[in-house]
Amino acid sequence: MGGFLKSSVARKFAMALSGLFLVLFLAQHFTINLTSVISPDVFNEISHFMGTNFLVQALLQPILIFGVCFHFIMGFVLEIRNRRSRSINYVRFNGSANSSWMSRNMIYSGLVILAFLGLHFYDFWFPEIVHKYIQSHPEDATRYYGELVAKFESPVRTGLYVLSFIFLMLHLIHGFSSSFQSVGFNNKYSKGLRGFTVAFAIVIPLGFIFIALFHYINNVQ
């Protein structure tokens, strides 16, 4: 793979595929989270399944972690290489005349998302590992909803989540449709597809924001 990834086109392809994979994951994560607003029982049930199913834990979770790491590392590699491709910068560069802010600042929206993932792991993933494997608590299929809701008591955390989802939106508005171009898909369906990707990029993060605010407001009341 190292050899294949030496080419700029292949790197672009790999970046797109890992991005598309993460978009799929995001859709799945969103669907599960949404159940927390509708029914705590359903949320608990699905969370318990995800947390204890062997296939999810032993196969899908490592693939996901690999996908996330790959996308970030490749993003940094590309950024460094691209900066080197213009060793002397322009005195005046009017990027907004020909491209969107989102497309020019993927590295910054990506960095915010990376920082958010750190917080998110600290909030949910690490406590989960400690709970299951270090403290070895007995299985409790009803604990997930309470744990989730407790996290959104803090206005600071809720605010940070909301802010991160806005950057996720900016990242997706460019990234989702761009990945189709990268894998070579540009034809008469592209315009429609772009509409779908932009709608997805806006609706899903807004949905996440709604869920975070929903639990925060419920806590306050």
Binding site: S99, H174, F185, N186
Partner: peptide
């Protein structure tokens, strides 16, 4: 030593001959 394309689309807009991004795909 040219950079990696990230599909900003700036090239297509600035190209004096209107060469389309379809070519990159």
């Amino acid at each position: 030593g040219f950079g990696n394309c990230t599909n900003t689309g700036a090239c297509e807009i600035e190209c004096p001959k209107g060469i389309s991004l379809e070519n990159i795909a």
